[in-house]
Amino acid sequence: MKKWVVLFRKEWLEMSRNYKIIWVPLVFILFGLLQPVTNYYMPDILKNASDLPEGTIIEIPLPSSGEVLAQTLGQFNQMGVLVLVLAFMGIVSAERKSGMIKAILVKPVAYSSYITAKWLSAILLSAASIALGMVASWYYTGLLIDPYPFINLVKGTGLYLGWIVFLLTFTVFLSSRLNSSGLVAVCALLVSILLSLSTSLLGKWMEWSPAQLTTAASSFLVDGRVEGPLFLPLVITGVLVVIFLFLSTTNWQRK
């Protein structure tokens, strides 16, 4: 346990050295703030961007605060997932490439603690960044549009984090198996896109899919209740996370 804490702290030291600890949260806060602001100023933006004839009246109904927060979540699911996957694609593979992993594993530490320390620190940083981004979005939405119940924000964001934990676990798994960080990013993003697409297109067949959690989260943010399956995707996501985490800690390369 003591060794695990040392590895865990090394991970945070690393993330503060390469500024991940600052820029990842800032990126999410920035996107979180931008969403309500663009919604609020949308009529002005359209007026300035297009060459409409003098006197054109643009009337866009202001979305409800829940809809704005769901849009923020959608933004996080595109730009945010891209940023997180690119930030953590080399989490194991880059250290293997640079030989760092050998320097660590000659010491008497278990490979599984090395991986789980990395996994947990990546998840904590990402979850904190998304939570901060959602709170920032919630604050601006409250100022510009309508106050929104904070407890619903917490619940909706919590549901969404299930999907993020799954994606990050999968990224760590790929990173522990593949040598090229670029390939890790491509595979992780492909899986994320394919799962999201198939979940929205083949709703009936994909009720188990972890991507259902994003649908559940945004419908919760808009209506205050979840439409569609919830229990099954939560269980499946939990099971998949455990499986992929287990697979990444089994080190077949050293045998």
């Binding site: 820029w23 800032l26 806060i29 920035l30 703030l33 931008l34 100022l143």
Partner: peptide, 19 residues
């Protein structure tokens, strides 16, 4: 409303340049 957005942007630029 806009100054926090600009502030974050400036911080990100500074960190990128330091790095």
């Amino acid at each position: 409303l806009v100054s926090p957005l600009i502030g974050i942007q400036v911080i990100l630029i500074i960190i990128a340049l330091i790095d």
